[in-house]
Amino acid sequence: MRNALLVAGREIGSYGRSLLGWAIGAAALLVEGVWFSANGLSGSRMSADVLREFFNGASGVTMIVAVLMSIPLLAGERERGTLVLLNTAPIRDVEIIVGKYLAALAMVALITLVSVYMPLLIFVNGKVSLGHVAVGYTGIVLLGSAALAIGMFTSAVSRSQVMAAILGGLLLAVMVTLWLVAKVTEPPVNGVLSGMALHHQRQFPFMTGVLKLENVVYYVAVTYFFLLAATKTLEARRWR
């Protein structure tokens, strides 16, 4: 764990010093702000609907932010030739993956939580429960965590950041649109596909303030699976 935290500390510092981290953060807040203004503050609506709509937009932005944040973590290091420093140090592959994941998750969580002023604006003219806000953010962070793990896996298998971004985008798109495929398939396949979809069925309860354990477990499982795949990929490439 010590080594993972060491790697995480360096990555967080790197995000802070690089243009990428700030640019992604600023762009995310801008898009979320525009979305909230256009969909939440226009017309007369129920406060809970405004909040749900905000979380809907924020969840999409968070998925993209998470993938963008994860791309440089391994493919970028491979391109720059710095991965060898980690590969030849007495640390385990899982520590490298976990360290980088924790750093990126911290950044995704930070960018997500900085937008909290928008839900709080609802209190000016309306009323929502703080629990709804907390559950909504929990869902977004869990979704970001899963998207981050997917991005880390594509970053681990790719030689270049461009390839990692393309693969990450494609895999994320497939995972998100599985519910559409489910619509045109028969039971029980449609149930499985719908249940595997990254956003639609799993994220909607969080947006409405409903915390279901099965959804939490789903996101944790997706995160674990792709982090494990990234670790095994790194392990295989290290010795190739």
């Binding site: 790197s14 030739g81 710095t82 420093l85």
Partner: peptide
């Protein structure tokens, strides 16, 4: 202690 042909340096540090 290993130095590869391209030093593994983080330019931002």
């Amino acid at each position: 202690g290993y130095l590869p042909d391209t030093p593994p340096l983080y330019g931002e540090m």
